[in-house]
Lab assay of single mutants.
Amino acid sequence: TFVALYDYESRTETDLSFKKGERLQIVNNTEGDWWLAHSLTTGQTGYIPSNYVAP
């Protein structure tokens, strides 16, 4: 799992909003700078900017 370093507000319907400190499970990280992730807090799935999270 990864932890959010910053808050992120989604800009498209495929993005995932999250708050700093939220735990995220990475589903697919082969898309370059945008990873498909599942929030362990909200249960939602969407794309996140990879530079906003850390292991």
Rank of each mutant, 00 (worst) to 15 (best):
Y8F: 10
L40C: 12
V53D: 02
S17T: 10
H38Y: 15
R23A: 10
D7L: 02
I48D: 00
A37Q: 00
S17V: 05
N28E: 11
Y47I: 06
H38W: 12
N29H: 11
L5A: 04
K20D: 02
Y8G: 01
Y6V: 07
G46N: 01
F18L: 07
Y8P: 00
W35N: 01
S17F: 04
D15H: 15
T42V: 01
E13R: 08
W34A: 06
S50W: 09
K20S: 07
T30Y: 10
N51D: 10
V3M: 08
I26S: 04
T42W: 02
G21R: 02
E9D: 13
R23L: 15
N29S: 14
E13K: 11
Y47S: 04
K20C: 07
T30A: 13
N29K: 14
P55E: 10
E22T: 05
K19Q: 08
Y6F: 12
L5S: 03
H38D: 02
V53L: 08
S39P: 00
F2T: 03
N29A: 14
K20M: 08
S10V: 04
T14N: 13
Q25F: 15
W34K: 11
F2V: 12
D15G: 15
A4M: 06
S10Y: 03
E9F: 12
Y52W: 08
K19A: 07
E9S: 10
E13N: 12
Y47H: 05
W35Q: 03
G21H: 05
A4H: 01
I26A: 08
Y52G: 06
F18G: 00
K20V: 08
N51Y: 11
Y6D: 06
G21F: 05
V53F: 07
E13C: 13
N29W: 14
S39I: 04
N51Q: 13
V27C: 13
F2M: 09
E13P: 13
T12Y: 14
N28H: 09
H38P: 00
T1L: 15
F18K: 00
S39E: 01
F2G: 02
S17A: 09
V27Y: 12
L24G: 00
N28W: 11
D33N: 12
E9M: 11
E13T: 11
V3P: 01
I26G: 02
D33A: 13
N51G: 11
P55F: 10
V53C: 04
W35H: 03
N29Q: 14
F18Y: 02
L24D: 01
G43M: 07
E9T: 13
G32Y: 08
V3G: 01
G46P: 00
T14F: 15
L40N: 05
T41F: 09
G46Q: 00
V27P: 05
T45M: 12
I48R: 00
K19M: 09
L40G: 03
K19L: 08
L36V: 07
Q44C: 10
D15V: 11
D7S: 08
F18I: 10
G32T: 13
G46I: 01
N28S: 14
S39Y: 01
N51P: 06
P49C: 09
L36M: 08
R23E: 13
S39C: 03
F2R: 04
L16F: 12
G46D: 00
L16N: 02
I48G: 00
A37H: 00
T12N: 15
P55H: 09
G21N: 06
T14P: 05
A54M: 13
I48N: 00
Q25G: 05
L24F: 15
V27N: 06
T12M: 11
D33E: 13
T1S: 09
W35T: 04
F2E: 00
G46S: 01
T1F: 15
D7A: 06
A4V: 09
Q25V: 15
V27H: 08
H38C: 14
A37N: 00
V3N: 03
S10H: 05
P55T: 08
T45N: 06
T41I: 11
I48Y: 01
V53K: 02
V27K: 08
P55L: 11
S39T: 02
Q44T: 06
P55A: 11
L24I: 07
N28L: 10
Q25M: 14
E22Y: 02
L16Q: 02
D15E: 15
T30I: 11
S17N: 08
L5N: 03
T30R: 10
G21Q: 02
L16A: 05
T1W: 15
H38N: 07
S10N: 05
G21C: 07
L24A: 00
Y52D: 02
S39D: 03
I26L: 07
T12I: 10
T30G: 11
V27W: 13
A54Q: 12
E22G: 01
L24M: 09
Y8T: 01
Y52Q: 05
L16R: 02
I26M: 06
S10P: 09
L16G: 03
T14R: 15
Y8D: 00
L36W: 11
T45L: 08
R11S: 13
R23H: 15
P49V: 02
V3A: 04
T45C: 11
G43P: 01
A54R: 11
T12W: 13
S10Q: 08
T45I: 12
V53I: 09
H38M: 15
G32D: 12
P55C: 08
E13M: 10
A4D: 00
E22H: 08
T12G: 14
N51F: 10
A54C: 11
V27F: 13
D7R: 03
A37M: 10
Y47P: 01
D7E: 05
Q25P: 00
V53A: 05
S50I: 06
G43E: 05
Y52K: 06
W35P: 02
T42G: 04
A37R: 00
Q44I: 08
N28C: 12
L40H: 06
T41C: 13
S39M: 03
Y47G: 02
L40R: 05
Y6N: 06
I26W: 02
W34F: 11
A54I: 14
S50K: 14
E9C: 12
D33P: 11
E31V: 12
N51H: 13
E22R: 00
R11V: 14
T1H: 11
E9H: 10
Y52S: 12
T1M: 14
A54S: 11
E13G: 12
Y6T: 06
S17D: 05
T14W: 15
S17R: 06
E9A: 10
T30P: 09
V53N: 03
G32S: 14
W34Q: 07
S39A: 04
W34L: 09
T42R: 05
D15N: 11
V27Q: 08
F18Q: 00
F18A: 02
T30N: 11
R11L: 12
W34D: 03
F2P: 00
E9N: 10
N28G: 15
E22S: 04
Q25E: 13
Q44W: 08
A37V: 13
V53M: 07
S39R: 06
R23K: 14
K19C: 08
Y52F: 12
E22N: 04
G46K: 01
L36P: 01
L40I: 09
N28R: 09
P55I: 10
S17W: 04
L36I: 08
P55V: 10
T42P: 01
D33T: 12
F2S: 03
R23C: 14
L5T: 04
T42E: 01
I48H: 01
L36T: 04
D7P: 05
Y8R: 05
W35V: 08
L36F: 12
F2Y: 15
T1N: 09
A37D: 00
H38T: 15
K20F: 05
L5R: 05
I26Q: 03
G32I: 11
D15C: 13
T30H: 11
Q25S: 09
A4Y: 01
K20W: 04
R11N: 13
D15F: 13
Y6R: 13
T1K: 06
W35K: 04
T45P: 01
T1C: 14
Q25D: 07
T41Y: 11
Y47T: 05
T14K: 13
